[in-house]
Amino acid sequence: MRKSRQRLWMVGGAGVILAAALGLMLLAFGDALVLFYSPSEVAAAPPPAGERVRVGGLVEAGSVVRPDQGGALFTLTDTVATIRVSYDGSLPDLFREGQGIVAEGHFDHDGLFQASNVLAKHDETYMPPEVAEALRAQGVWQGNEATAEAGE
């Protein structure tokens, strides 16, 4: 086969695959991105019910309820606004009252956040960056960002 024909095939094939990949990525970026909301942001403009989002804040002291059958209910706060969170799974070991956590899930129609995953870091001085940022915005948190223990 002539070189020019061969080049045409290669460029054409690459173009088709790249176009398909770009199309898939744009579609996915349109609605598979998960936005982060602080409690104040939720209070100001709540995301639509059912949309997958992340929320984060401090676990309000005394707010954690553990029903007899399992799961947990708790309140996240940035000291200005709060979000009530329901979680059916098993909370991470480092989940504690007063600690910063991030939860991923969606709001139901009653405004209760149904978490499908709760993230707490393996370090009690750790503050998730989004939470630190959100708290700093409220003037609450002055500490440094995560200076956690190294090691993999």
């Binding site: 898939l24 996915a28 598979a32 991105l33 998960v34 982060f36 991923e104 989004e130």
Partner: peptide
């Protein structure tokens, strides 16, 4: 805005490839 890109993105883009 602070965002995270989770499994749904990768499942819908990398998996078809």
């Amino acid at each position: 805005r602070s965002v995270s890109v989770g499994a749904p993105y990768f499942n819908r883009t990398a998996t078809p490839m």
